[in-house]
Computed example of a mutant assay.
Amino acid sequence: MIERIIEGRRRDLGGFEVSRILPHAQKRMVGPFVFLDQMGPAEFAPGSDAINVRPHPHIGLSTLTYLFEGEIMHRDSLGYTQAIRPGEVNWMTAGSGIVHSERTDPLKKSQGGAMHGMQAWVALPVEKEEIAPSFTHLGEDAQPTYENGGLFARLVAGEAFGAKAGTPVESPLFYIHWEMAEGVRAAPPPPKSKGGYTERALFVAKGVIEVDGRPFHEGQMIVLSAQAEPTVTALQPSSVMVLGGEPLGERLIWWNFVSSSKDRMEQAKADWQAGRMKLPVDDDQEFIPLPEA
């Protein structure tokens, strides 16, 4: 039932740790998901810098931010300023190019507190890589949910189990948040042959689950084989992200840029270095320089 197991790799982003799951050397993408980070879990002391990601550019993708705990303030070059809180969704389509920052509000910094969430990048189909940039925020009550017998499920993006989320996706995909009490059982969307999806995976954000008779713990991704129809059992209270979709083909990734074209990637580098990409309207006093490598 299991094609591959991916161990998250911890990285320090200047005082804040993330676990990098995708891309992986042996599994670059799952469906259109080309990047997946777990942010935290962390507890910030009052007055600490918390989340402080300066303005930076994207092309050729959509970013999806989803939180279990905490708050992040999003600002972008389209003029949007939007806080995201647990259960909400920030969906930003970069397309031909967008610049944004992600920071902790000064008041929240002074108070301190917990931070735990997920950030995903979803590659755009080749014919839509250069669409106009856009931003969509969905509140906690604006997404399909299901709750029964110790299982809470929220459809964060895409379509699954006859439901459709409000995120403006550009290709077939699903992204689901499960909260599972100990002993609860659940099943991911079926394989393509049963009306589901070609590629599917489970990521354990918290707790321990069992798949195909094997236990998996926080920070592990289980990539399912094409025809697998597993039952997932929570061995303790667990938070699980279930994701997948239809593959889009190979993509180049360099820094914050995703593209099917090397020339387009080079153009994006040159545009950022030359200052040709507009900074966020309410956050234009600093930015992250183009890396040297």
Rank of each mutant, 00 (worst) to 15 (best):
G8P: 00
L13P: 00
R264D: 09
F35S: 00
F161S: 02
A165M: 10
E88R: 09
M115K: 04
E182W: 09
V34R: 01
G219I: 11
V18Q: 01
F135R: 06
G207R: 08
E182N: 10
E179I: 14
P291L: 02
D76K: 11
S193G: 07
T63Q: 11
I59W: 05
L252K: 13
M29I: 02
G117N: 06
Y146G: 02
R28I: 06
A123L: 06
A123E: 02
G162Q: 10
A163E: 15
L202K: 01
V232P: 00
L36G: 02
G8H: 03
P280E: 13
I59N: 03
N256G: 06
L290C: 05
H177K: 07
V223W: 04
D76H: 12
G245E: 04
L13C: 05
K27T: 13
I51T: 13
G196A: 10
Q143G: 10
G79Q: 07
Q38R: 08
E140K: 12
A160C: 11
S171K: 00
A45E: 15
P190G: 14
L155S: 03
L124H: 02
E250V: 05
H58T: 09
E210M: 12
E43D: 12
Y146N: 04
E159R: 11
G139K: 15
P144D: 09
K269Y: 07
F33L: 11
T145D: 03
V184Y: 01
E182Q: 15
L78P: 07
H116Y: 07
N148S: 15
I176F: 00
L67H: 10
G14F: 14
G70D: 09
N148F: 08
P190K: 14
Q267D: 13
I288V: 15
P215S: 15
F33T: 02
V18C: 02
L151Y: 00
S77N: 06
R10Y: 05
H56R: 13
H116T: 04
A270P: 03
S239A: 12
H116I: 03
F174L: 06
D49K: 15
S225D: 15
S101L: 14
F203T: 05
E250A: 13
R28G: 08
D76A: 09
I176H: 00
G95S: 07
L13Q: 07
G112L: 11
S259R: 05
G219C: 04
M241F: 14
Y66N: 05
D12K: 11
V169E: 08
W121A: 02
F152I: 07
S171N: 04
V18M: 05
P23I: 04
G113A: 13
